[in-house]
């Protein structure tokens, strides 16, 4: 009885649409000839599309770089704050968490202005430091630039979770290690890191799923530098541009289903790892 209202909304706004998307993806609409059943043709189009696969590989590459980097930085700060070896730790923790409250759109707009080739303060600073003209939006640097923005947005969130996890390690465990004369680095890397491993696995999973859905940042950047972000820069952009941009809704639905399946596979992988370790209840 208490669960029912949620289930109704869940069914209407998640399960029905998903089913409808799968159904819709099996049809093709043409200006001439109307809508007709076309079986898996849309899936063939998506799966044989270079644009789509380029996007998939790009976000995978992005995830492989961004996720470990974000979590490593987050763990470093979480461990340092947990040990209490910096001054003003509390203040820093609050500051680092602030970007969590900043919408991705605003973050991307701010960073676009800061990095704007020729005009942005950061580009200017690099120039005056003798790095010459650095174009953060060039096809070579666009992905690292997005990594930078996403690190800015999400490190604090990851840090907060890791910090809470580190804090739950009993004090006497740390004390015993200290009495044994273990240096701080050893305590953090050899003792605490393995103890928060379940949290790290979970964070890898959350960050991975987020990275695979990358959309906001590249779509905002594309307004500043249209040539840097292509039609299918990420799979989600492909879905958006196909469905909303070109009005090919059936094809877009097929792409969305494929994307959901890819993300589902990654999630299942993470799930399997956790199961094997007996970490999922």
């Amino acid at each position: 009885m208490f669960v029912a209202p949620h289930l109704v909304i869940l069914t209407l706004f998640m399960i029905v649409p998903t089913g409808y998307a799968v159904y819709d993806s099996l049809f093709t609409s043409k200006l001439v000839g109307g809508t007709r059943f076309s079986g898996l043709a849309n899936y063939r189009t998506v799966l044989s599309s270079h644009e789509f696969w380029d996007g998939v590989w790009r976000v995978l590459l992005f995830a492989v770089v961004q996720v470990p980097l974000t979590i490593a930085i987050a763990f470093f700060f979480a461990a340092v704050f947990d040990a209490g070896v910096v001054r003003f730790g509390r203040f820093f923790r609050t500051v680092f968490f602030i970007p969590f409250a900043v919408p991705g759109v605003v973050a991307a707009v701010m960073w676009s202005f800061l990095l704007l080739p020729g005009f942005g303060p950061y580009s200017k600073a690099l120039k005056s430091l003798g790095f010459g003209h650095v174009d953060f939006f060039s096809s070579k640097l666009i992905l690292p630039t997005i990594v930078l923005i996403v690190i800015w947005e999400w490190t604090g969130y990851n840090m907060t979770i890791l910090y809470a996890s580190l804090k739950s390690i009993p004090r006497d465990v740390t004390e015993a290690a200290v009495i044994d004369g273990a240096p701080l680095r050893t305590i953090i890397l050899r003792m605490k890191l393995p103890m928060v491993r379940p949290t790290i696995v979970m964070l890898v999973f959350i960050n991975m799923v987020g990275a695979l859905q990358l959309f906001t940042e590249p779509s905002i950047l594309s307004a500043f530098q249209p040539q840097a972000v292509s039609y299918g820069f990420t799979p989600t952009l492909y879905v958006y541009n196909t469905a909303v941009g070109s009005g090919e809704y059936n094809l877009g639905a097929a792409a969305a289903v494929v994307l959901a399946l890819i993300i589902g596979l990654v999630s299942l992988g993470a799930f399997a790892v956790r199961r094997r370790n007996g970490e999922f209840r």
Binding site: H6, L10, F13, M14, V16, P17, T18, Y20, A21, D24, V209, L212, Q213, F215, T236, V239, Y240, A243, Y249, G252, A253, A256, V257, L259, A260, I263, G264, S267
Partner: peptide
Amino acid sequence: LVMATLLVPITALALPLFLV
């Protein structure tokens, strides 16, 4: 089942929602 909906990416859901 409810927890499994955590795994459904919102970006993959938005377009289906629009179609409905």
